[in-house]
Amino acid sequence: MIEREFSQSKLNLFLKVTARRPDGYHELETLFLPLPYPADVITVDYDGAPGIRVTSSLPGLPENLENLAGRAALAYAEAAGILPSWTIHIEKVIPVAAGMGGGSSDAGAVLRRLNGHFKALPENELARLALTLGADVPFFLYPHVSVATGVGEVFRPVEGMVSPPPLLVVNPNFPVSAKWAYTHLDPARIGNGDREKLEKLLRGLREGDAAMVAGNLHNDLAFALYEKFPLLRMLRDTMKEAGALNAEITGSGPTLYAVCETVEIRRQVAQRVRERFAKETATVFENIPLSPIK
């Protein structure tokens, strides 16, 4: 039997690092916005050879238990008391090490699909299991707009529906690890603040106010990325010059997103990026749905 599951990506429209803990991890306050595109497609074959096998459409991506999706499947099998004979294939669309949650999303999608099939764990146990795999994996079990605190593992869903403005995502086709981004964070940027900006951002999303959303984007990790990788500044500036209201890096980067007032302006911005940068330099994700998100 074969089943499929979509693995959504995410944007961080707001990311404030509030503290550095003695164990080296950072506490933060961040807004997660799930995106139905770009998305990976997870295929699970329950009639494979004994054990767990993970493959991918992307050459060089870790496979089997070296892939987080494989470790998620193993963790589920052990927690549920199941002897697995599963072959999992990942059709990769979400950029890798790009600040869009691709690996965590794949792991969350595998857990969601396995539990939908076997129904062996209640939701609270599934969430606890997801947390052992990574701080943001629980978010991807059932993605919805959320504010995360702690080290990114404490999620507070945003009440009601939000109406994001037209968004354009541009990946510069090179990876950046989260470890690099946090290691190069300027300590002077760490601390509480910008709560008013987050509240305005949430209000803009609820009201469908593109200008309010654009004016309140924030990412403490972006400053070091712009300094280290001039291409990111060039992409940001190109999108703003082409008509985007604002553009910023998501998460630990290096992917950028642009907030546009209309779909037509988004199309113009996407075209300008494609004209100025070769496809080997930047991948443009334009067709992000505009439907309200819960």
Rank of each mutant, 00 (worst) to 15 (best):
I2N: 12
E3V: 12
R4E: 02
E5D: 00
E5Q: 15
S7G: 03
D23G: 09
G24C: 03
E27C: 02
L31G: 07
Y37P: 04
Y37F: 15
A39W: 08
D47H: 07
G51C: 06
I52T: 09
V54C: 08
S57F: 06
S57G: 10
L65Q: 11
N67I: 07
G70E: 01
A73H: 13
E78D: 15
A79P: 10
H89N: 08
V96M: 10
G99L: 08
G99D: 05
G102D: 09
S105T: 15
S105K: 07
A109P: 14
A109R: 14
R112C: 08
G116K: 04
L121I: 06
P122N: 02
E125P: 03
D136K: 02
H144Y: 11
A148P: 01
A148E: 05
G152L: 09
F155N: 01
P157C: 03
E159S: 09
S163V: 12
P166F: 06
P166N: 08
V169L: 15
N173V: 09
A178L: 07
A178N: 11
W180P: 11
P187V: 00
R189E: 04
I190W: 00
G191N: 00
N192T: 08
E199A: 13
L201Y: 00
R206A: 08
R206H: 15
G208Y: 06
A210P: 09
A222G: 10
F223Y: 13
A224Q: 06
L225V: 06
L231I: 10
L232V: 01
M234Y: 03
E241G: 05
E241M: 12
G243T: 05
L256S: 04
E264D: 15
A270H: 13
Q271L: 09
R276P: 07
A278H: 13
A282V: 12
T283Q: 15
T283Y: 05
V284P: 07
N287R: 14
P289F: 02
L290W: 02
P292L: 01
